[in-house]
Design a protein around this nucleic acid. Structure first.
Length: 560
DNA sequence: GCCGTTTTCGGCCCGACTGTTTTCAGTCG
């Protein structure tokens, strides 16, 4: 079992306990343990071998035993006992926004429903409102929520799929029979939601590769196979297909299988496949079709083919361009890492600066900082900066945009900070006009440098709030406020479309991790993929600036 | 169920909004 699967089992135990209305602190304990495991930087099996599971914060004797049982047997007796009371299908109810544990329990108890299909039927048949305490709004909410689930049906976030894909690729790559290998399809293009994982292998022995695949530890089942492919399912129900080609055809197939269907249809029309044999790189494939090289993330037929015909493909931003991270939480609010740990990690990533941007006071649950704590934190940051000569910690805040559009701190407080990220964390359901005005007000506030996760969307969970993007972008352009690409793979907000539009309007973009743990700084890779899908170049991105330029930029709003 | 620089037992748990109500329970960040 992977860390992720073990963490998910603990989360599901917490959900089951919550549906059973157990002690909330016990539930919180399971959630905390799950969270610790998600943010571990090493395989739990390694902890197990060294008997160190008990040393993980939030994991005591009971959870330690449970994890050991999961590692040894692949299942847990306690979990099995819980699902005898509450069928696992009831947990799916929780994926509907606004439907929580209490409501799930009510529906199961009164109607005996234990799967989403029957739940939808019951909502359509107006049977939900027969349950005391539930009404027509809940029925409407279920129908709407099911719509959302069905829209993204079968698709997985890149954050879940990419690590699994890379693991499988690396496993196959170890075989001497694999001459060349690459991820292809939507996952190589960096799409935020992917239907499946596609891997292309160059080999002269397809049968052996299939055997290798069948023996993969994380493979749950083989679904389908043919002479030159094999498909199966990994954990979390993620589908995977391994496509095999003879080595001379690898690069032709690589280019063919990477682009979207629309891209393929246009670029490959009427070209004989034989022309791509024996090429030495993907660049050569593009030479054959008389286009300059198009980065995988752009291959969507959205104008890039025309650019390639003119030799005008932009130089997209890449990881090496990034000089720092401008949205990072610490243990001063809801983050798990000390500022010093974040600094160490940021230096490992080759950054020269990082901004500590904890939550502001009104976000109580996240331990938001009041003015006094913020100033204390500033002193700690000063002390850390004293010790560093080639790295800078910026003083920042992720200030809440209140319901009225005002910020959670007065100007005098924000003025003293190096960087101000302003974000919405409450009142998601305001009407479009009010919500739009609210954000524009924050943009105009004179203190804000970056708007964080602009639309509030959570992939596969929640659409963004009602928002009129056009006037927001106009205001951002006019007042020279940057927009964030929040790199968390559940957000990737703003998305590639808004990014591209913003770039065309001259708005700067900050690619931020919004890290809440040390390891989360690495999530920036997903934001970079989104930026590339939005055609962003290094000069469009705020945090490609070196420290001196950045500070000059931040301190002189009128020079922007 | 976890944890301990007041504690090995007794805390841990904020606040706003929404829906279903008629004064409150559930959800969520």
């Amino acid at each position: 079992m992977t860390n992720r699967e073990i963490g998910r089992t603990l989360d599901r135990i917490a959900d089951l306990l919550q549906i059973k209305d157990e002690n909330p602190f016990k539930i919180a304990a399971y959630r905390k343990a799950a969270n610790s495991i998600y943010h571990l930087d090493e395989d739990l099996h390694v902890y197990y071998q060294h008997d160190r599971i008990g040393s993980i914060p939030g994991i005591g004797k009971a959870v330690k035993n449970l994890i050991e049982e999961l590692i040894e047997k692949g299942s847990s007796e306690y979990y099995q006992r819980l699902v005898q009371d509450i069928p696992e299908g009831v947990l799916d109810f929780l994926r509907i926004p606004g439907l929580g544990h209490k409501t799930a329990a009510l529906i199961y108890e009164h109607l005996g429903i234990d799967n989403l299909d029957d739940l939808l039927k019951a909502a359509q048949d107006r049977r939900i409102r027969t349950i005391p305490g539930l009404g027509s709004k809940t029925e409407y909410n279920i129908k709407k929520g099911m719509d959302l689930l069905q829209q993204s049906h079968g698709k997985t976030t890149l954050g879940l799929a990419l690590p699994l894909a890379q693991q499988l690729r690396d496993y196959l790559a170890e075989s001497p029979l694999v001459e060349l290998i690459s991820l292809v399809g939507s996952i190589r293009r960096g799409k935020p939601l992917v239907g499946d994982i596609d891997i292309l292998v160059a080999t002269r022995n397809g049968e052996e590769i299939k055997n290798l695949f069948r023996n993969y530890r994380e493979l749950q089942q083989v679904m389908d196979e043919g002479p030159d492919y094999i498909a199966g399912q990994l954990s979390f129900g993620i589908k995977v297909e391994v496509i095999m080609v003879e080595p001379p055809h690898f690069y032709g197939a690589l280019a063919w299988t990477t682009g979207s269907k629309e891209f393929r249809d246009r670029v490959w029309e009427g070209i004989e496949p034989d022309r791509f044999a024996n090429l030495a790189s993907e660049e050569e494939v593009f030479k054959v079709i008389r286009l300059s090289f198009i980065p995988p993330e752009m291959r969507e037929n959205q104008g890039e083919i025309e650019l390639a015909q003119q030799g005008a493909i932009p130089r997209l931003v890449e990881a090496a361009d990034i000089k720092g991270d401008l949205h990072v939480h610490s243990d001063w609010s809801d983050g798990g890492a000390k500022i010093q740990e974040t600094v160490t990690q940021a230096r490992l990533l080759g950054y020269s600066y990082v901004a500590i941007t904890d939550h502001s006071q009104s976000l109580g649950i996240s331990g938001g900082l009041n003015e006094q704590r913020l100033s204390q934190q500033g002193k700690v940051i000063d002390a850390i900066n004293q010790e560093l000569d080639d790295f800078h910690v910026l003083k920042g805040i992720e200030v809440d945009i209140l319901k009225t559009g005002r910020l959670d701190f007065d100007d005098e407080v924000l003025e003293k900070l190096d960087v101000v990220v302003a974000s919405i964390h409450s009142n998601f359901k305001l009407d479009k006009e009010t919500q739009t005005d609210r954000i524009i007000q924050a943009i105009k506030s004179d203190q804000v440098d970056i708007i964080g996760h602009l639309t509030g969307r959570l992939l596969n969970r929640r659409s963004g709030y009602e928002l009129d993007i056009e006037p927001v972008l106009q205001a951002a352009a006019q007042y020279q406020v940057a927009l964030e690409i929040n790199s968390h793979p559940d957000r990737l907000d703003i998305d590639e479309h808004i990014s591209r539009q913003a770039r065309e309007m001259g708005i700067k973009i900050a690619i931020n991790s919004d890290a809440h743990h040390r390891e989360d700084l690495k999530l920036l890779q997903y934001g970079i993929l989104t930026a590339r899908r939005g055609w962003l170049q290094p000069e469009d991105v705020l945090n490609t600036m070196d420290y001196d330029s950045l500070i000059t930029y931040l301190r002189n709003k009128d020079l922007r």
